[in-house]
Design a binder for these strands. Structure first.
Length: 533
DNA sequence: GCCAACGTTGGC
DNA sequence: GCCAACGTTGGC
């Protein structure tokens, strides 16, 4: 006689589970597990369940026999699962067949095959609808595993290889790279200032403040950034982001009590760990804004110049959307025509940065007519020209830039982009490319400049420092985390549908507009002109 | 024809 | 040897 169908909350509402014990035959006492889907389909095995749910649904942690989701239990767990040894001693093989179903079933439940796979409470409890499953999480939205080997951001399981060293935060490789990139741009933003306040409008150092008198380093690229006291952004100061008790911005030592959110992985649809949410933190920095606002179809609605009267709306954009996504999902495929991508490129400090300096000592380079990609070089705030067409594909920017079609691509540090010509055609593609997508030497090849020798810092301490400051927006970003020193890392790529900005006159006003929308958190037109001229 | 129950098999 | 997976059978 088959047991009654019972709810299986682990699979979600509507799912039923039944365990039928065999009462006769050679397999007497054995139990068969059946599931019934909300649509009434009967499933007899995990394979069938996977087939039914689709390959996207990972049933690795789903205990088919017990109908629960289980998480890996550390071997040191005090309530370790009884070993098979106990099973064998308690149930002689000969007596096995003489047992009636339920008794044998209980024995089987005590001895799951994957010894430490199932939480002990789960294994020892009868599986009934009323019995509280330890972790009855629907498969469609698995809860973050409490195990220490789970990425705090996306929840995926990590191998010990991925966390060889002790870290304050346990993040997978992708999430860590995203965080580092994010923090880099945060740091970048902090160094630039609003560009509109009276302090930012000061063009020259005062020469009398402590910074100037002491000739403290003012090298953004190196990270030793001590800005003239008279030129420190007042807005940032007002926000308390400058610490006047110290020389220079407090950026280097500023820490968030909670880490900014990282884009989760697409495969991980479950809620992210709350500690990575910063719902109370207004996303004003460009990178965060991009994370939050520039997304797929929402982009059209969110970008300031897309809809009529949208500029005013756009001022509110950073405050009303908090979307997060993974690196994979950040490769957005938008339906609107995408022709000339607009690449937002950041590169780690290194040779490219130096070559950019050669082109423009002030840090900016006016794009040349035959230049498509303009790299904003992290740290130097400089733009770098890259000949060739705008990359139409985010898959391989290096190849795309070697094409023949001309076009402008204006690179900005993850700044919300505005359509230049036809707002109704404006779409964007946000792409997160790892360094692997850009060939080493790509920049030098594209720019026609050979990168100077790279001064590489010892990786160990810096990486450790990086890891230990992952919730610090001003942390340094070790190149090895992202792709190696000197390797460009494209963090965001926008696509400008059918629009190519040919000269500064074309894009500066628009840039100014979008920057103004962005709460003055980045460059202004004036500052850009000053830098360019 | 449906479905519960049982048998068989191959992988581990 | 155990068991997941699945084929087969027989009752309804």
């Amino acid at each position: 006689m088959a047991e009654a169908w019972q709810d299986c909350p682990a699979l979600g509402p509507g799912w039923k589970r039944r365990e039928a014990f065999r009462k006769s035959g050679a397999s007497c006492g054995r139990s068969d597990i059946y599931y019934r889907s909300p649509t009434g389909e009967k499933i007899r095995s995990k394979i069938e369940l996977t087939r039914y749910l689709g390959p996207a649904c990972d049933l690795t942690l789903f205990d088919f026999r017990q109908g629960i989701l289980c998480h890996p239990v550390p071997k040191t767990h005090p309530l370790a699962v009884p070993s098979k040894k106990k099973k064998k001693t308690s149930k002689p093989a000969k007596a096995k067949k003489q047992q009636v179903g339920p008794q044998r079933s209980e024995v089987r439940k005590e001895t799951p095959r994957e010894g430490n796979k199932v939480a002990p409470a789960t294994a020892l409890l009868p599986v009934t609808a009323s019995a509280p499953a330890p972790v009855p999480v629907p498969v469609s939205a698995p809860a973050p595993a409490p195990a220490p080997l789970c990425c705090e951001n996306c929840g995926i399981h990590l191998s010990w290889d991925g966390i060889k060293r002790e870290r304050r935060r346990t993040l997978c490789k992708d999430c860590r790279a995203q965080r580092i990139a994010f923090n880099r741009e945060q740091r970048m933003f902090k160094r630039v200032g609003c560009g509109e306040c009276t302090a930012c409008l000061v063009k020259e150092d005062c020469g009398v403040c402590s910074i100037c008198c002491l000739q403290l380093p003012n090298d953004v690229a190196s990270g030793l950034f001590c800005k003239c006291e008279q030129r420190r952004c007042l807005r940032i100061v007002e926000k308390g982001k400058y610490d006047h008790s110290k020389r220079g911005p407090r950026v280097a030592s500023r820490r968030h009590s909670r880490a900014p959110p990282l884009p989760p992985h697409a495969a991980s649809q479950h809620p992210e760990p709350t500690e990575l949410h910063i719902s109370d933190q207004t996303p004003t920095a460009p990178a965060e804004f991009v994370y939050d606002c520039v997304e797929e179809d929402e982009l059209k609605r969110l970008l300031p110049s897309i809809g009529p009267g949208s500029e005013e709306e756009a001022r509110l954009l950073p405050h009303h959307t908090h979307q997060k996504r993974s690196a994979s999902t950040r490769q957005l495929q938008l339906s609107s025509p995408l022709k000339a991508p607009l690449a937002v490129v950041t590169t780690p400090p290194g040779p490219v940065q130096d070559s950019g300096k050669r082109q423009a000592g002030s840090g900016f380079v006016l794009p040349q007519p035959d230049t498509d990609l303009v790299y904003l070089q992290e740290g130097t705030s400089s733009l770098m020209q890259v000949p060739g067409p705008a990359a139409a594909s985010t898959e391989n920017p290096a190849q795309e830039t070697q094409g023949s079609a001309p076009g402008w691509v204006v690179a900005l540090p993850q700044v919300k982009q505005e359509k230049a010509d036809a707002p109704e055609e404006w779409t964007a593609v946000t792409t997160f490319l790892t360094s692997s997508t850009v060939q080493p030497g790509f920049l030098s090849k594209a720019s026609g400049l050979d990168p100077p020798p790279v001064k590489r810092e010892p990786p160990g301490p810096e990486e450790d420092g990086e890891e230990n400051k992952e919730d610090d927006v001003s942390e340094s970003a070790p190149a090895e985390e992202i792709g190696g020193i000197g390797t460009p890392v494209i963090t965001e790529i926008f696509s400008l549908g059918g629009t190519r900005l040919r000269d500064a006159e074309a894009w500066l006003p628009r840039l100014h507009k979008l920057l103004a929308v962005n709460e003055n958190e980045y460059f202004t037109e004036l500052q850009l002109k000053e830098e360019i001229l």
